[in-house]
């Protein structure tokens, strides 16, 4: 008797991605470059976040042809993005048998009040979060993996750092509370009490936590891993840089050896120009992607 799509199976794939780098790709050729450089998975997109930011307009799910082409090019897991709340896009991605759906603030939100009911799907979901309450709300909706939102397409790591520190700091704070203080904490976090009790006891999320949004260098990856990320998403940072294969390999190496500065130093040598970056602090309110979702 086989049980498919149990939560253990959904969250289990994220467990297998730990210590790895998930790379945004827009063509089968890029997917191959990513796989050959040691990507643990690829995110199949029409445009990387930096281009979405530049082009403006409504950003939607990718063309199934793009996704299929990438699935055929590589053997590693293929993820794809659906708009926040756009459960029909997620249904299409499930029909395409992508390995993970990213309900992503990088695309234009389709619903300003509701996220996708992720329990209704066989395919697992990863969702972004800026703090612990947001992470727990996504998990309550069925997310099987969490990532920081950061500020995608900027090459500026500052927002990812803020989000990772917020999540791990709030986890530590919960661990210091008494049992009778947890209901109020749950109310403040706007998260279900049972999940709050669970993370207060274990000190960690019940699913894998990656970082995303602005990671552009091997040292960025090392920084995020030392701050508690269990793996790294790199969006525009690789294929918008001068030498994508070398940078991809270097970020993979720095993620494995994140705690060894000499190895991170060696990985950082001679990579050429990083992506063209935007300072996240100087973006207009309307340009901030991390504020999408709630």
């Amino acid at each position: 008797m086989r049980d498919e799509a149990t939560f253990r199976v959904k969250a289990g794939l994220a467990e297998m991605l730990k210590g790895g780098v998930i790379m945004d790709v827009v063509t089968p050729e890029q997917a191959k470059v990513a796989e050959d450089a040691g990507a643990a998975a690829v995110m199949a997109l029409e445009r990387v976040p930096a281009d979405i930011r530049r082009d403006g307009g409504v950003a939607r799910m990718s063309d199934p042809v793009t996704i299929r082409g990438i699935q055929e090019a590589v053997t590693i897991p293929v993820m794809a993005k659906a708009r926040i709340g756009h459960f029909a896009e997620a249904q299409v991605l499930e029909a395409l048998e992508v390995d993970y759906v990213d309900e992503s603030e990088v695309l234009t939100p389709a619903d300003e009040a509701h996220h996708i009911d992720k329990w209704a799907f066989k395919v697992p979901f990863v969702c972004g979060a800026t703090n612990l309450g947001e992470a727990l709300r996504r998990i309550a909706e069925g997310a099987a993996m969490i990532r920081s939102k950061g500020e995608a397409g900027t090459g500026d790591v500052v927002e990812a750092v803020r989000h990772m520190r917020a999540i791990t700091g709030e986890l530590r704070r919960l661990g210091s509370l008494n049992e009778d203080e947890l209901p109020t904490a749950a109310k403040e976090l706007r998260a279900p009490l049972d999940l709050v009790r669970d993370v207060a006891r274990t000190g960690k999320l019940p699913v894998v936590l990656f970082c995303a949004g602005g990671i552009a260098t091997p040292a960025d990856a090392s920084l995020m891993m030392q701050l508690g990320a269990e793996g790294v998403f790199v969006g525009s940072g690789i294929f918008k840089s001068a030498d994508p294969p070398a940078r991809a390999r270097a970020i993979v190496e720095a993620t494995t050896h994140f705690a060894d500065p000499e190895r991170v130093a060696r990985a950082s040598e001679g990579l050429g120009e990083a992506m063209t970056s935007l300072e996240a602090r100087k973006l207009d309110e309307a340009q901030l992607l991390a504020q999408r979702g709630w």
């Binding site: 498919e4 799509a5 053997t75 499930e94 048998e97 992508v98 066989k122």
Partner: peptide, 12 residues
């Protein structure tokens, strides 16, 4: 990946 993609992952 002999059993297929993630949607075919299972426990037994």
């Amino acid at each position: 990946n002999a059993f297929g993609r993630q949607v075919r992952s299972f426990e037994a």
